[in-house]
């Protein structure tokens, strides 16, 4: 039974298999950890950092993202310490400036006591969770959407040469988008390329 490890999440003792992440164990145990870029069919991405938790391992306190941190024997996890709450509150506040009105963010705002316009509004509506890009690449293998640019200029972009051929019959990424931006950007891409190819 060396493949089973014992960990504690919020005081609850849990058994987990080696290779699982904290988030996977928490989901199974019904412990809520918020996420924006996690999807069960996709490689963990670690971009939104909302699933950050506090861990204690070998006597040291640390903050890690639960979607990627692998469980180990004796791991103690706190999913809602004051510092974790602060991290999540600020992440939500930072994202609300970019995607005001996103229902998912509004829900998180209420849960973590975030301020709606702490950083004003600079709407772009994409929070760069990458769900659309990754779903299209990893699951559908169509590669119709790409991340482009770097740093604060990073954004997503449909590649018209592929999107106009493939997307109309798929659109599976639209409901994954926490802000409906993917759909809007697709329509824009279509319009700029001379309208729907039908």
């Amino acid at each position: 039974m060396s493949d089973v490890v014992n960990i504690t999440i919020d005081g609850k003792e849990c058994k987990a298999e080696k290779g699982m992440t904290i988030l996977q164990v928490a989901l199974r145990e019904g412990i809520d950890i918020p996420t924006l870029c996690y999807h069960k069919d996709l490689e963990p991405y670690g971009g939104c950092r909302l699933c950050t938790v506090e861990i204690e391992s070998r006597g040291r306190k640390n903050y890690v993202v639960s979607c990627l941190y692998p469980v180990e024997e004796g791991l103690v996890v706190k999913t809602r310490s004051p510092e974790v709450e602060k991290i999540r509150r600020i992440i939500v506040e930072l994202l609300l400036a970019r995607a005001p009105g996103s229902p998912e963010l509004i829900k998180l705002k209420e849960e973590y006591g975030a301020k709606e316009e702490k950083f004003g509004k600079e709407p772009i509506f994409c929070i760069l969770c990458g769900l659309c890009v990754r779903y299209c690449s990893e699951v559908k293998k169509k590669y119709a959407i790409s991340f482009v640019q770097s740093g604060v200029k990073r954004e997503i972009s449909f590649i018209p040469e592929i999107a106009l051929k493939e997307c109309d019959k798929c659109k599976e990424c639209f409901p994954l988008c926490p802000t409906s931006y993917a759909q809007a950007l697709y329509l824009l891409t279509q319009a700029l390329s001379g309208g729907p190819s039908t």
Binding site: V133, C136, S137, Y143, A144, I145, S146, F147, V148, Q149, S150, S157, I159, E161, I162
Partner: peptide, 22 residues
């Protein structure tokens, strides 16, 4: 970008991403 993608069997959106990253 499309040519390199095809010849090297690298997804177009990966080549695109690199070409716009720097």
């Amino acid at each position: 970008i499309f040519y390199l993608s095809k010849r090297l069997s690298v997804p177009v959106n990966e080549v695109m991403r690199i070409a716009t990253f720097y």
